[in-house]
Design a protein around this nucleic acid. Structure first.
Lengths: 239, 239
DNA sequence: ATAATAGTGTCTGTGAGACAATATCAC
DNA sequence: GTGATATTGTCTCACAGACACTATTAT
């Protein structure tokens, strides 16, 4: 019935949780922060970090708090946005739980701080994570999150969130390549990135790597959306 | 705390609801289905249709059921997708309520069936609705939903969901114009629509309106995404 | 004929894909 | 020098915006 109707179907209690899909690019792979569950159900299985929403706390606030507790990082340093809600009956055998999933993107983050349950946290390559058995419906959430990240790379400038500043154009390109599983033409990628107003800002500095010509360094620009977008089109196969 | 931690912060009960943003194009305006609240809080104010999720029901199922109850329509005839969750403490003065908003798009729908509380439902132009006082945080939800609809028109073929079949290219163009608040070049729009594989399929029939050359009729095609997208760019002002 | 809407054709500029060529480092 | 990576430049094609022009109906 609608909200203005008499509660012939009364409200019934559910639990509200937030789950975090924290993605980073590390050692050439897209990785997700997973914890090993220390209790039933799904004892020993990988699971997304997350927890109950507290009584006086909004959803975004709960996600920020969990992020801080899990990674020891200030959520303002990461890109954090709601993904969507999941509430299939039976998704948690302990009762009716509606979870709101958040997608967090950040540069090669330190392995989470010790001293908490997050000590059991690991950066797992997304490919492996999707093959492994994840607790609850976390495999579905992870799939959705990765697809969302791939799409956001097309239409927004969030790729810079994966790079510690200052970064090179090649650093940024590798983010796209790893997350999309493609190779991109360095020349065309550079043209797109440097000619799109507000995508990256040159610092004037250069960095010399092990080999090759030193690369110019950049910071993230002010633009949030990419117009026109940077579409993954033909997607030439990788490797 | 994380899910695997001891429940030092115990779960606490919240209510879960779904709210529907049902949009249609009618009489030259983008309209949303709103109800007049028949009880406190926000007695007499406009509100989005919605209601409690039932114990054995998933979120999508709850949205489909509410849609059927509110409009008498089979949800499969409409485009229905989750928008996002809203759970700010205090958004409902009666208690902690997390709502999952859904966006439904459909062709000029009949005014909802009588015999239920939906008898108080009206198709309100979105512009008016955003000026009016909406119950709870429904103004925020409506703003987000309209922005989502505008964006979906760019990257997907959902615009056809607003047209009763068969439809003409001009019908489809008016959907874009009304929802974006712009005018589009008829010639360029036709080229885009008819040359994009799977956007529309010709029926071979024609329709004669009050004036002018009869227009060819089309059905929605199989494509779900628009590649390349149909971007609102310069957005020439309307009127 | 005129008004009105549908539909076609063409010119042009922007931007992406392909790819050659050059620059600058370590060794 | 070689090898490796960065950076610039160029050619071409797809496609969108602007807009002229033709087609088919009602009146």
């Amino acid at each position: 019935m609608i909200e203005s109707a008499p509660p012939t179907i009364p409200r019934f209690p559910v639990s509200a949780t937030v789950d975090l899909v924290i993605l980073t690019v590390r050692e050439g792979a897209l990785r997700v922060l997973l914890i090993r569950r220390g209790k039933e159900p799904h004892l020993g299985a990988y699971a997304l970090p997350g927890g109950y929403v507290r009584p006086e706390e909004g959803l975004d606030a709960a996600a920020l708090r969990e992020l801080r507790e899990e990674t020891g990082l200030d959520g303002r340093a990461l890109h954090l946005a709601q993904l969507r809600a999941y509430g299939t009956p039976g998704r948690d055998p302990r009762g009716r739980v509606v979870t709101v999933a958040y997608l967090a993107l950040g540069p090669d983050l330190p392995t989470p701080v010790a001293g908490t349950d997050a000590a059991h946290a690991e950066w797992v390559p997304v490919d492996e994570a999707l093959d492994a058995e994840l607790a609850f419906d976390h495999a579905e959430i992870l799939r959705d999150a990765v697809e969302e990240a791939r799409t956001k790379l097309e239409y927004t400038t969030v790729a810079t969130s994966f790079c510690r500043e200052p970064f090179t154009v090649s650093d940024l390109r590798r983010v796209y390549e790893v997350i999309w599983g493609t190779t991109l033409d360095p020349s065309n990628f550079r043209r797109k990135v440097t000619r799109t107003e507000g995508f990256v800002e040159p610092t004037g500095e250069r960095r010399t790597a092990e080999a090759g010509r030193p690369a110019a360094l950049y910071r993230a620009g002010r633009a949030q959306v990419l117009y026109p977008p940077l579409l993954r089109s033909g997607e030439p196969e990788r490797r």
